[in-house]
Design a protein around this nucleic acid. Structure first.
Lengths: 250, 250
DNA sequence: CGAACACTTGACAGCCCTCAACGTGAGTGG
DNA sequence: CCACTCACGTTGAGGGCTGTCAAGTGTTCG
């Protein structure tokens, strides 16, 4: 068993991956850097330390608990699930990560990854050596600030679903949150696919899979959404947002 | 109503606060910086931008939702509670912060604080202007790394109690976690005071206050601890740790 | 002394989990 | 093409954990 994170690299697949200066338009970093007026030479510096990873297929791991921490990664395509297995063998889903979002941030404090990351479908990643990006950040105030904000945002997000909310509130918040995050990256906000099984959703929301089924069914009966297998369409978005409001808006 | 965070400053109280080079031995920053071989001039630079705040008394706020974000702060004495009020008027306790711990990290992403911070007892703080400490961090790699780690650790901690655990597991994890954090700062690990009311503990653990009472009572009957009002002594620490293990150790 | 607050204790109910069975779709191999 | 397998998802019945409601006790403070 490999003890190294990000084991599967296949550069050949990425031959068509944009030009040198406008790489990864969906990337969490280029977006931030460009908007903060990073100049071309800085962008090139950043580009130099990016390593393209993938494609990883459903079930393949990006990293596992205990792998030595060396890099964070931005999801470029697909969905990554992070999770841990506790001492009783129970799985706990920590989060789902969509294109433009960054994984591995919780590993910075420590020299190994504290959780597992697995591809739920076909996943492409941009890998950033953390020691290298730290050095660069000291030279580029915009990049340093961006890293601070990324980390800070993750704290806030983690606290969201930690609160004491009903099954309906959490499910609505999950759907609205997913919609917003996908929309921010240019995907359709009201019509998308659930890339994860019900069991993972349930686990993430601290619900039983059966409860997820029942809540989705009731939402459909109440005209809040249309769901068929993993295809989803939000119809009564306003009422869903009202349900989710206590969770999303503190 | 003041719109500025950290409104109450009383420097006179702090006249006896150590000398220039060995300031705040309990401070979250000096500890890290010293251990990472920061030289005297760097420490002085850091010292220059520290602002001592306090004492704040129970019920006084450090900052409130919507206050403009300008600084993070290390708790030097006392306990700070962070919380939000949701749209339905329900309070959600996000965390308790003991000496040596840092508050305000979740505000970095945004220009206002996303939560309230209130003193539960008499609180002393070290305030760090975030723009200033960012600039300094670019010059001091150890400080930048320390900030990254602080932020990363908060992500991990936030994910802990978010999982799906029983009332017993969460309460045990809360007690063991509190004990460990106090012990790390030199306080007694097995005998300490709960500085917050039951309602806040309950809220933080997503339990009813009545459940907190009942679990504590049962823990006492089972010989796990002695509790009288807010005075607490952990007796059966190993069994408590066993209960808390699924929560604390992923 | 009285009021306010924190905490405890008991009775009861409800939300959601557990358990079990069934239905469905995708992939496989004959 | 079809039978088979298997994971995933749904549906129903029942129960347990924990919340809600209510009342009572103890402490602090004006």
């Amino acid at each position: 068993m490999s003890n190294t994170a990000f084991p599967r690299v296949d550069r050949s697949v990425l031959a068509d991956d944009g030009d040198e200066l406008n790489f990864c338009s969906t990337c969490a970093f280029s977006q931030a850097c460009l908007s903060q007026g990073m100049d071309k030479s800085s962008l090139q510096d950043l580009h130099m330390l990016v390593e393209h990873i993938g494609p990883l297929h459903a079930g393949e791991h990006v990293f596992r608990v205990g792998d030595p921490f060396e890099a964070i990664a931005a999801v470029r395509a697909g969905t990554v699930k992070t999770y841990v297995i506790d001492r009783d063998g129970r799985e706990h889903v920590l989060g789902f990560h969509f294109p433009g979002e960054v994984i591995g941030l919780d590993a910075i404090d420590g020299d190994t990854y504290p959780c597992n990351a697995v591809a739920l479908d076909t996943v492409m990643l941009c890998r950033f050596s953390f020691p290298k990006i730290s050095v660069l950040a000291a030279r580029l105030p915009g990049l340093q600030q961006h890293l601070f904000r990324l980390l800070s945002r993750s704290i806030g997000r983690a606290a969201l679903l930690a609160g004491d909310f009903s099954a309906d509130e959490r499910m609505a918040a999950f759907l609205i949150g997913m919609s917003d995050r996908l929309a921010a990256r240019g995907f359709s906000p009201n019509r998308f696919a659930l890339t994860m099984p019900r069991t993972d959703i349930a686990n993430y929301l601290r619900l039983a899979p059966e409860t997820v089924s029942r809540v989705l069914k009731r939402f459909q009966e109440d005209g809040l959404l249309q769901v068929e297998r993993r295809e989803l369409e939000l119809v009564g978005r306003e009422r869903l947002e009202a349900l989710a409001a206590p969770v999303l808006r503190h």
